[in-house]
């Protein structure tokens, strides 16, 4: 009895607060404003207009860029950490994690104060007699904000996989004639793929759906998909169109996730850094 009863409340809870909301979004996305529900594809058709497709393309592009930069910058960092002496490693990893504990908005806000027209960066520039520049409210600022916020999400899973990796595999490769570069290309990197994949999805997902970073570092325009959704719900009040965009975002992320999972399973069965 206890066994059956104990999960009862959560069945009810997850139905009301997880399943029903998704159904509502689906229903909204397939209908137009009006008294009664009427099936319609108008919202999805509307999204196919170039204005919105451009927003989507921009979101994906900037999220992919942020992910690639995080990977390129984060992988060497993860390797350095993994090979550090144990005594310093714990401290170094903690140093990496501490900024993540800081409120996300404060971390983004910090860049506002640095990149601002009257901010510290311009101050440094004028000190050296260089012309002032507008850093804030540009695509570059958004990209920087993303890399800053999400870099540890890339480093940590890769670091975890690398530390778990059996060192004798690397020795075996060297023993069989592989130099450092070949060892990395043929053994270390392929074996760290599960970490890379989970890092990639942990950076790409929040990057593609954010509206805070773009809002604070770019301004209130329709910049990314996240801003578009937010505006539809809170400003324009077109919940039907907003729901349709949310659905598209959700499907896009689910597809990305399943591709990542598939890749991860095909690659290696052991040592996966499953952070989720």
């Amino acid at each position: 009895m206890l066994k059956k009863l104990s999960s009862g409340p959560y069945w009810l809870w997850s139905f009301i607060f997880i399943v029903v909301p998704i159904m509502l979004i689906i229903a909204f996305s397939f209908s137009v404003p009006g008294e009664a529900f009427k099936f319609s594809l108008d919202n999805y058709k509307r999204f196919m207009e170039p204005v919105y497709l451009k927003v989507l393309a921009r979101s994906v592009k900037i999220a992919v860029e942020a992910t690639l930069i995080c990977l390129a910058v984060g992988y060497p960092m993860a390797m350095i950490l993994a090979r550090m002496h144990l005594k310093y490693r714990t401290i170094a990893v903690m140093l990496l994690v501490v900024p993540m504990w800081m409120n996300f908005l404060l971390r983004t806000y910090a860049w506002m104060t640095i990149l601002n027209k009257n901010g510290i960066l311009n101050h440094i520039l004028s000190f050296f007699g260089l012309p002032q520049m507008t850093f804030l409210y540009s695509e570059g600022a958004v990209l920087l904000g993303m890399v800053y916020n999400f870099l540890p999400f890339m480093v940590l899973p890769i670091y975890t996989v690398l530390t778990k990796m059996d060192n004798s595999l690397i020795e075996a490769a060297e023993d069989l004639g592989a130099n450092r570069r070949t060892v990395f290309r043929k053994v270390t990197f392929p074996l760290s793929l599960p970490g890379v994949l989970s890092g990639v999805s942990m950076v790409f997902m929040p990057a593609v759906s954010t509206f805070v970073i773009s809002d604070l570092l770019y301004g209130g325009q329709y910049m990314l998909v996240g801003n578009l959704i937010q505006q539809q719900f809170l400003v324009v009040n077109d919940w039907h169109f907003g729901s349709a965009i949310s659905m598209l975002l959700m499907v896009m992320i689910l597809i990305t996730m399943s591709i990542m999972n598939r890749l991860g399973q095909d690659g290696v069965e052991q040592g996966g850094g499953n952070i989720w």
Binding site: D166, S168, E171, A172, D175, L191, Q270
Partner: peptide, 13 residues
């Protein structure tokens, strides 16, 4: 010189 390792160290991938 080649080595046979204690725990084999075969490449799992």
């Amino acid at each position: 010189i080649n080595t046979v390792f204690q725990k084999y160290a075969l490449f799992p991938h």
